[in-house]
């Protein structure tokens, strides 16, 4: 017999957020504590006089922005996963699995080809054209996938997964095509922009992403109660007074924005939006007022730690962080697919 879960209260939410904030803080400290450079927390907190060998500067300008970016990107992809799942009533709806990331990557590659998404000399610029294009690519993919997967007004999970898989294959092929018409130097940019790698950018980019991502997450959080009602289906939610079309539209736009921003900066980091919300639901329950903020914090922690692994296990080399999230997330996806098939969640 499971212990009875009390309905969510403001105090409960506060506790959840406090605990996950603490987890995120610990993850960030862990992320800052080690890396390719020699500095650690001690050098960060108690700066020695002078910084002749740049240890502190490396910490502050390479490691710190990268850890912050990992947190933002992890949070963005996880919240996108959580709200897509709410909308589709399906725990497998991750931006990567759905093909939304694939759409974003097409946008990102097109921006590189159009010459407005350079990793060129503009290292310090916060904004680049890839963000906009990736957002549009994600939104286009999502609308297309929803249209195709909806049969007679309802969406079967298998149609959806199949559509996502096929869209991913299609976008993969399209990217191969774009690569083959790209010049050699563009090819390099494209390959690396898709690799699933958290870059170390200037604080300008960190700030732009932070504003965009936090605003989108906050906005999605404000309609958290609507997502609860949406689990009763679009009809059920309407009968409870939810303006379903508006919630859907906002979710599509903001979820695509989150995915697009993440993909434009870090390429394809898969499955994180699948793993983290599921774990959180098991521990905290399915209420989206809890799930959305905690997904941000939990996803941020997850990617900070995954990136910590990616950048330290084969020093002086690095692994793309997408490799690590896929190694964790792929089997997890199959496990979910297997164990959840008997439930009614997929109807």
């Amino acid at each position: 017999m499971r212990t009875a879960r009390k309905p969510l209260t403001a105090a409960g939410l506060l506790w959840g957020v406090v605990i996950l904030t603490a987890v995120l803080a610990c993850s960030i400290l862990a992320g800052l504590s080690t890396g390719g450079g020699e500095g650690g927390l001690r050098e960060l907190l108690f700066p020695a006089a002078g910084d002749g060998d740049g240890t502190r500067q490396i910490l502050l300008q390479v490691r710190l922005p990268r850890v912050l970016l990992a947190a933002l990107i992890g949070g963005a992809l996880t919240v996108a996963g959580a709200v897509f799942q709410a909308l589709l009533r399906n725990p497998l709806a991750d931006p990567f699995v759905l093909g939304v990331s694939g759409g974003a990557s097409i946008g990102s590659v097109l921006a590189v080809l159009a010459g407005i998404g350079g990793t060129g000399a503009g290292m310090a610029f916060g904004l680049d054209g890839r963000m906009l294009f990736a957002f549009l690519g994600a939104l286009g993919a999502l609308i297309l996938i929803e249209k195709i997967a909806t049969v007679d007004g309802s969406m079967s999970v298998y149609t959806l997964l199949l559509t996502g898989a096929i869209f991913n294959a299609f976008s993969g092929a399209l990217i191969y095509f774009l690569q083959s018409i790209a010049s050699l130097e563009q090819l390099h940019d494209i390959v690396f922009s898709l690799m699933g790698h958290v870059p170390s950018t200037g604080f300008g980019t960190v700030a732009v992403l932070a504003i965009g991502i936090l605003a989108a997450v906050l906005y999605l959080f404000l309609q958290a109660r609507d997502y609860n009602a949406m689990t009763l289906g679009e009809e059920g939610a309407t009968q409870l007074g939810v303006d379903v079309e508006r919630v859907k539209r906002r979710t599509f736009v903001l979820g695509s924005l989150l995915t697009g921003l993440a993909v434009s900066v870090a390429g394809l980091v898969g499955f994180i939006g699948l793993v983290v919300p599921h774990m959180l639901r098991l521990v905290l329950g399915p209420d989206h007022r809890m799930l959305i903020p905690c997904s941000f914090l939990g996803g941020a922690s997850f990617l900070v730690l995954a990136d910590l692994l990616a950048r330290t296990v084969i020093l002086p080399g690095e692994l793309p962080v997408g490799v690590i999230t896929a190694l964790v997330g792929g089997p997890f996806f199959l496990y979910l697919l297997r164990t959840r098939r008997t439930g009614h969640e997929f109807r």
Binding site: G37, I58, V62
Partner: peptide, 23 residues
């Protein structure tokens, strides 16, 4: 090889030859 920027900076190169920019 994809390498750690931190490590490469910490090793304090005296000469940097950058062939990455070619647009």
């Amino acid at each position: 090889q994809l390498v750690s920027l931190e490590t490469m900076l910490q090793r304090l190169p005296e000469v940097i030859i950058d062939t990455s920019d070619n647009g």
